[in-house]
């Protein structure tokens, strides 16, 4: 599924790297907030889920028990903001016993060397 042509080209989009799981902290929520606002300002945004950030995409998350909003409703809004390039680290999935079948959104899975290429191709990135 990897769009390797896209990786190789220099890219004006803001790359936001999400490395934290949902619920336990607000890193994920406040990272996605930056993604949505950036997109609302007309700038292209791509997301890379690395490390525990892949748990953001895990299916069957709920909000009720914790009295928190959760981040999955936010993720469902990505398409509305034209944020459609979602990259996921293969290492992160494998180390957690997950596959793309466990995820709530369609993603492109990247090998280690492709992750380095993705970073190199983006002029600006933020990590949350």
């Amino acid at each position: 599924m990897t769009d390797s042509h896209h990786l190789a080209t220099c890219n004006d989009a803001l790359l936001i790297v999400l490395r934290h799981p949902p619920h336990g902290s607000s890193w994920l929520r406040e990272g996605i907030d930056v993604a949505l606002v950036t997109a609302a300002f007309g700038r292209e945004v791509e997301l890379l889920f690395q490390g525990d950030g892949v748990f953001a995409l895990l299916e069957n998350q709920t909000t009720g028990a914790l009295g928190q909003k959760g981040t999955h409703p936010q993720l469902m809004m990505l398409e509305m903001y034209d944020i459609e390039r979602l990259w996921v680290s293969r290492t992160a999935l494998t180390e957690r016993g997950l596959t793309t079948d466990d995820l709530m959104l369609p993603v492109s899975v990247l090998d280690s060397d492709e992750i380095a290429a993705l970073h190199a191709a983006h002029a600006s990135s933020l990590i949350f």
Binding site: L14, D33, V34, V37, T38, A40, F41, R43, S124
Partner: peptide, 15 residues
């Protein structure tokens, strides 16, 4: 607002 952060990223040479 967060828009000012987006603006700062676009305007300045380094973040």
């Amino acid at each position: 607002g967060l828009g000012q952060l987006v603006d700062a990223m676009l305007t300045h040479d380094r973040l």
